[in-house]
Design a binder for these strands. Structure first.
Lengths: 347, 347
DNA sequence: TTGAAAGCGCTAACAA
DNA sequence: TTGTTAGCGCTTTCAA
């Protein structure tokens, strides 16, 4: 019992340097070392210096698993993203991650878009890590997952959409408004024969419906809708234009549900010697970085994805740290970027 | 002391359902409940059923922070990826995440590509979570980070490259070989005036050097190299071709260090009425999903990114679970995909 | 400002 | 097969 201090490491220990080791080296109690690292103001200059030296010398890296368990704050944020590879969400995730990292949080990734069974597993896995917040791309529909998330009490931010009944917080924009505004845009440009090329997706659905409704109010009925299914590739965009032309040869404007589909449409138009925008106007969605420099430059609907990521990160951290959230529901809006692929003015 | 069982929850408790609650409900000891969940074979049918029912009734989700702390196995894998938005690594990350998830692991994301100071912080943050493994895109150059990682004892897999001195495990391919093979390819196709359009990147560097060397052995000296710097956008590809043409008007083949740059080159060629592949052969790198369906379809170097992700995941898990790693160093190779953007045969 | 004690929720080790 | 005990490494609580 004389050598409590020098007692050999228990069999269970991982062998890594712990806060105890650092404290011992600095000649203080573990809790004092902890304070020196987490709340330096609560500690004298002398102690602070000794602890910092000890950390430097030992190469100590705090075990966040232990810290999270003790403090019930994991400093982990989970993001649930769809599995699409080239995704319009990339920019958002990058901003989310950057903002979180700067504040000392880590991002955990979960990919959705699989079977309901896997979705349930994903949620279990995520909640099991006790994240301080959960970021969701899209809106979680009512169901088991939603109930469960609500029950977990973990702050949640839903994004890229609007709903009057969010689980918790919301940073998005109105897909209906986009459908409406694009139809109006085409109408003003003098387009008379509209079509939509879209992927199978609930949000694209709402844009489509609003587009058709708005078109009707501008006297443009009979919008042709081409649904490419789950595959939102360039190839399906090409095929889609072929189908549109077969069904409605007089088409003079196409609104696509992604930039990639729009690229496909542009490609097919070029192959068929249909001049854009003289004979056909094409509008994309997403404003992926490179579409501005294509020829013709793609007109598209731009979402400020980075802004969504930043605001979502701030909101989650505000809630996690017990602060009030300034704006739990934010509409970041969108803008129609007019480039070369849409008609240049009234005829 | 009569009501040890009914003692009210301590002030520190988070209030969530714990394994204790489940065990109590099932009428067994916590450790038995733990075994029912983690190693069901070690438990009788009766107990298993009772525990499962208790879990169902309470909505219990195990706290992986506590589990990780107790078992020194976090079931967390960290991936360090560059911050590039549209990235050729996406496919790898998706496969990595998918494979890990199926085995009960979670993926944590860290973005590199910032300042050395941030890189150091990133590493601290990652090690602090005590991941069971670390996935790195690229090869970590010798330095503080490398030393630190080595000292941490955490299994590491480096990817997308080869080196005789990996930190630990390796899943990649030879960039020099690619440079060589593409030069050979162009030579065989009868191209005589080669150029390279490349981003600032150490791996592109090696492809470039090998390309130039190989070209020389085929009697094709004077390869023009256009370095677009850090910006690997479509626009810089366009500008790059303009520069190449100004410096070497007779150019008849360009090897680009990414598909996006190649798309820029194709675009600029089209604008200038340079026919591809008749007057100019263009080769990309990466085989991003949509380049196959462009017109002309892009010839490119294909890397099986998903395979890299899968193998890396398996290797990390094998090591984490104390199994031997079948192949700690894997060369997954590459293939040159010949499509429409390169010369169709000897003249 | 500093420290002792007591957990956070779970599992390894050992015992029955 | 089941249970008891004793931590994992940290931070909260309370006291000095």
């Amino acid at each position: 019992m004389a050598d409590k201090e020098t007692a050999k490491r228990s069999r269970r220990s991982s062998g890594a340097i712990t806060l105890r080791d650092v404290a011992k080296l600095a000649g203080v109690a573990p809790i004092t070392a902890s304070r020196a690292l987490n709340t330096p103001d609560q500690v004298s200059e002398v102690v602070l210096k000794k602890v910092k030296e000890a950390v430097e010398r030992t190469g100590y890296v705090p075990n966040r698993l232990a810290g999270g368990l003790a403090s019930a704050r994991s400093r982990l944020i989970a993001a649930i993203v769809p599995s699409t590879v080239i995704s319009v969400f990339n920019e958002t995730i990058e901003a989310l991650n950057g903002t979180l990292f700067d504040a000392g949080y880590q991002l955990m990734l979960g990919q959705s878009g699989y079977s309901p069974a896997r979705a349930e597993m994903l949620l279990e896995a995520v909640i099991g890590r006790r994240p301080d917040g959960i970021f969701i791309t899209g809106i979680l529909p009512p169901g088991k997952a939603r109930t469960r998330l609500l029950a977990s009490g973990i702050p949640v931010v839903e994004t890229w959409d609007l709903t009057p009944t969010p689980i918790d917080m919301l940073v998005g924009f109105s897909h209906s408004q986009i459908g409406h505004d694009v139809a109006q845009f085409f109408s003003k440009k003098g387009c008379r024969h509209l079509a939509i090329v879209r992927a199978e997706d609930e949000r694209a659905d709402r844009r489509t419906r609003a587009f058709i409704e708005a078109a009707a109010t501008y006297g443009l009925g009979g919008v042709h809708v081409e649904n490419v299914g789950a595959l939102r590739t360039l190839r399906s965009g090409r095929q889609a234009l072929a189908n549109v032309l077969a069904a409605k040869p007089q088409v003079d404007a196409v609104f696509c549900s992604s930039d990639l589909l729009a690229m496909g449409v542009l490609t097919e138009a070029r192959v068929r010697h249909i001049s854009v925008p003289e004979q056909l106007s094409v509008m994309g969605f997403g404003d992926v970085p490179f579409v501005a420099d294509m020829v013709p430059a793609l007109s598209t609907v731009r979402i400020n994805g980075a802004q969504i990521g930043q605001i979502a990160a701030r909101n989650l951290m505000d809630r996690a740290e017990g602060r009030g959230v300034a704006q739990p529901m934010v509409d970041v809006g969108f803008s129609i970027i007019e480039r070369d692929s849409t008609a240049q003015g009234k005829p």
